[in-house]
């Protein structure tokens, strides 16, 4: 077969080069693929680590704050009157958060009403020109997000546990039925609140587009009433924490 060797040697060599090359490509890219997956896992782990470290930092700060508070209590414990003052301050902060007291401060007032535009017809089409519970929820959410410290809607203080729900043609806030026009009052950084509400594509933008009358004013002296009914806690009981350290 030696004489006939030439006629297969060349094609076989050519084919072998190509086949080897393709194997090279494949092995190389498979290896790359595996490395990519490892990289992805690594970045996920790095993300977890960063988050955990941030949480740890937060908790350290919290611990520091609590220690300082404890020190303050101990310091004030010497004089009974001092302790009372500190506790009253804390009670006051809790009361504001709970809506148990009326509060006063700079903020904004936002008046909303159903649209002046009437639908041309069609069942359900007029719903487009009526303020819905979802619109009010969105406004309230926007206010909280912008750092509002106290919010009221038509005189109903909004606190944790407050609800804005639709009931027939009316809207119930904290179980009290209200109707258009709606008046939001919020205490907080005026500029922040205004710009948060007026954000492009935000809730007010959408309402103005449909010709809802929207009146947004700032005020240096807004008074927000307390919650009319203090919420009762029937089911939730505080957990007694044993402070042995």
């Amino acid at each position: 077969m030696k004489s006939g060797a030439r006629h297969w040697l060349l094609p076989l060599t050519a084919v072998c080069i190509v086949l080897g090359g393709m194997l090279g490509i494949q092995v190389r890219s498979q290896k790359e693929r595996g490395e990519m997956q490892v990289g992805r896992q690594t970045s996920a782990l790095v993300g977890m680590l960063t988050r955990t470290e941030a949480q740890l930092e937060q908790q350290r700060e919290e611990t520091g704050r609590l220690r300082a508070l404890l020190a303050q209590y101990e310091e004030e414990a010497a004089s009974e009157r001092g302790l009372v003052r500190v506790m009253r301050e804390e009670l006051q902060a809790s009361r504001i958060a709970l809506g148990a007291v009326a509060v006063r401060g700079p903020g904004i007032e936002l008046e909303l009403a159903d649209s002046t535009r009437r639908s041309i017809g069609g069942i359900g089409a007029e719903d487009l020109y009526v303020i819905h519970d979802a619109d009010l929820l969105q406004v309230a959410n926007e206010l909280w997000a912008a750092g509002a410290e106290a919010v009221a809607l038509n005189g109903q203080r909004l606190v944790t546990g407050s609800s804005i729900a639709c009931s027939a043609r009316l809207i119930e806030v904290n179980g009290v039925a209200i109707a258009s026009p709606f008046l939001f009052q919020a205490i907080g950084d005026k500029d922040k609140l205004v710009s948060a509400l007026n954000i492009r594509g935000g809730v007010l933008d959408g309402l103005r587009l449909l010709e809802f009358p929207v009146k947004l004013t700032t005020n240096d002296e807004i008074t927000i009433p307390p919650l009319s009914v203090t919420p009762k806690h029937i089911y939730a009981q505080p957990v007694e924490r044993e402070s042995k350290q």
């Binding site: 040697l9 076989l12 060599t13 050519a14 084919v15 072998c16 080069i17 190509v18 086949l19 080897g20 090359g21 393709m22 194997l23 090279g24 490509i25 494949q26 092995v27 190389r28 890219s29 498979q30 290896k31 790359e32 693929r33």
Partner: peptide, 29 residues
């Protein structure tokens, strides 16, 4: 000779050519 060609082809491509995009890998395979 063909065997050497196979190995050389493999090494040359492995070292010189950048890896193909993943969606081509199936076609190469």
């Amino acid at each position: 000779i063909p065997f050497a060609a196979l190995v050389m082809g493999f090494l040359a491509v492995y070292v010189l050519v950048p890896p193909v995009p993943p969606r081509w890998a199936d076609y190469v395979a």
